[in-house]
Amino acid sequence: MIKKLQNHKLEISKQMHSLFQLSYAVEAKLLDAVDFPPLKRPIESYQESKTTFYGYLEHGVLAGIIEISHSQNHTRINSLVVSPMYFRRGIGGTLLEFVFDAFDSAVFVVETGANNKPATQLYKSLGFKEIEQWETDFGIRKVRFEKRVD
């Protein structure tokens, strides 16, 4: 089941923070990152965020989260995380498909670490095309993908 998360509530933001920490710790290892900014995101950042969060719940457990920003015809996927206990069950794809269906956008945009093979393969499998790659100030090569809907 997918539902909108009430991120302004402290208990919900704590659950979100915990899931993000678990997932981003795995990504940091995939990227060989010593300094990984997403792991430094505080709970208050979730509570005060103006972005929209949707959670994938399996038997009442928060197993995945997608964070988006939506404007008139553009949707940015700010983050997509899945608990390591729920990897390879299709949750990331299900959350992305939910966003594609829920938001009438001409363009969907997402970024990830270039060496995050599970994420890059998922995005490509769902019709995203690589737009650019660049080096960050903290030593991680990133990639931006776009999916255009005609």
Rank of each mutant, 00 (worst) to 15 (best):
K3E: 15
L5R: 02
N7F: 02
H8M: 03
H8T: 12
H8E: 11
K9I: 14
I12R: 02
S13D: 10
K14F: 09
K14G: 01
Q15W: 00
S18W: 08
S18C: 00
L22K: 15
S23N: 00
Y24F: 13
A25D: 09
A25G: 11
V26L: 12
K29V: 10
L30A: 05
L31I: 14
A33T: 08
A33W: 05
A33F: 04
V34H: 12
F36C: 01
P38E: 04
L39D: 08
K40P: 02
R41W: 10
P42T: 06
E44P: 00
S45L: 02
S45D: 06
S45R: 05
Q47P: 00
E48P: 01
S49F: 14
K50F: 06
T51R: 12
T51L: 12
T51D: 12
F53I: 04
Y54T: 07
G55D: 06
L57M: 10
E58R: 03
H59F: 14
G60Q: 13
V61N: 13
G64A: 12
G64W: 05
I66S: 08
E67I: 08
E67W: 04
S69E: 11
S69K: 15
S69A: 13
H70L: 03
S71P: 01
N73K: 15
H74I: 00
H74P: 03
I77E: 02
I77C: 03
N78R: 09
N78S: 11
S79D: 11
L80C: 14
L80F: 11
V82W: 02
P84V: 07
P84Y: 04
P84R: 01
P84M: 04
M85Q: 12
M85R: 09
R88M: 03
R88F: 07
I91R: 01
T94R: 07
L95N: 01
L96M: 11
L96C: 07
E97F: 03
E97I: 09
F98C: 02
F98H: 13
F103M: 14
F103E: 15
S105H: 04
V107D: 01
F108D: 02
V109M: 10
E111V: 09
G113E: 09
P118R: 07
P118M: 07
T120G: 05
T120S: 10
L122P: 00
L122H: 06
K124L: 06
K124I: 07
K124Y: 02
G127Q: 00
G127S: 01
F128W: 03
E130R: 05
E132N: 04
Q133I: 13
W134Y: 15
W134P: 02
W134S: 13
D137F: 06
G139R: 06
I140N: 04
I140V: 14
K142E: 14
K142Y: 07
R144N: 01
E146N: 08
K147V: 05
K147P: 10
